[in-house]
């Protein structure tokens, strides 16, 4: 059923149940959903309204099986997100959504899964991991590569450490720079590529991060024999309405908010990295 913009433009007011600071500029909000509950698919986003400041699209970073909470992990980049960082438990925030396309996890049952996250791009990929780990036997080999600026910027650090202990998940973290004592990798995320072993015939890759990072990752994946129709990317553009009406997020013929943010690379290959498109 089609939703009406009239209702969709008015945010539901949600109470913050938990505020957790992840790093110096990143935090996680746990919201109690409106009465009717909240369900989403991994990769989708909500429009979050900070009272009196404005609204921004933020991907959902929680477990899709958990309909009792709405979880967002946010990096304070602009006016709205910086103000959100000062929110406290029991304060409220406006939520519209969920919007957009999702990582096609249901279609990828039986496949090997490669997740490549850059920076805050780990947030929209975390729901995929939650889903896969709760349905572990339905997927083949699972590998997560996560690149960040420094060890101090790593998000979900505890969770990643506990995931590292699992035998059914390969995980590599790399940072751009580190001080002595960091035992992980240093170098951009693409430098991990030559070391990983993929079965190109059975792997599906999901990429989320800055466009440059996805661009070079795609080149490495191509070298490894993956085709564009095995690679999913998540795009970012200016979004105001979230429902394909305001026109801001256009990427050629697509509306990133409605036809994306998750795209099969082969569908948008001609649009990706086209300058000033």
């Amino acid at each position: 059923m089609k939703a009406l913009i009239k209702d969709i433009m008015a945010p539901a007011v949600c109470v913050i149940q938990k505020f957790r600071k992840e790093t110096q500029d990143t935090f996680t909000l746990e919201l109690s959903p409106p009465e009717e509950g909240f369900s989403f698919s991994p990769g989708q986003f909500n429009m979050l309204y900070m009272y009196g400041i404005g609204e921004v699209p933020i991907s959902i970073s929680g477990d899709p099986a958990d309909t009792g909470r709405i979880i967002h992990t946010i990096r304070a980049y602009g006016a709205v997100t910086s103000r959100m960082m000062t929110l406290k438990k029991q304060e409220m925030i406006g939520v519209r959504g969920p919007f957009g396309t999702h990582w096609p996890i249901e279609d990828l049952v039986g496949r090997d899964i490669l997740l490549v996250a850059g920076g805050i791009g780990i947030a929209p990929l975390r729901p995929v991991l939650f889903h896969i780990l709760s349905n572990r036997t339905r997927y083949g080999k699972v590998l997560l590569l996560y690149g960040e600026r420094t060890p101090g910027d790593l998000i979900f650090r505890n969770q990643i450490e506990s995931w590292r202990g699992r035998f059914d998940l390969e995980l590599e973290v790399t940072v751009d720079s580190a001080r002595e004592g960091w035992r992980g990798n240093v170098g951009v995320v693409t430098t991990l590529m030559p070391r990983i072993v993929l079965d190109p015939s059975n792997t599906a890759a999901m990429l989320c991060g800055p466009e440059i990072m996805m661009h070079y990752t795609i080149q490495e994946l191509t070298k490894k024999g993956l085709r564009d129709d095995q690679i999913y990317i998540s795009m970012e553009r200016n979004m105001r309405c979230g429902i394909g009406l305001c026109g801001h997020c256009q990427l050629g013929p697509t509306f990133v908010c409605k036809d994306g943010p998750v795209f099969l690379l082969s569908k948008v290959r001609h649009l990706f990295r086209k300058r000033e498109l």
Partner: peptide
Amino acid sequence: RVFNNDKYSDYN
């Protein structure tokens, strides 16, 4: 067509 896209309708 714009204000009645494949997913959403504009009420006004």
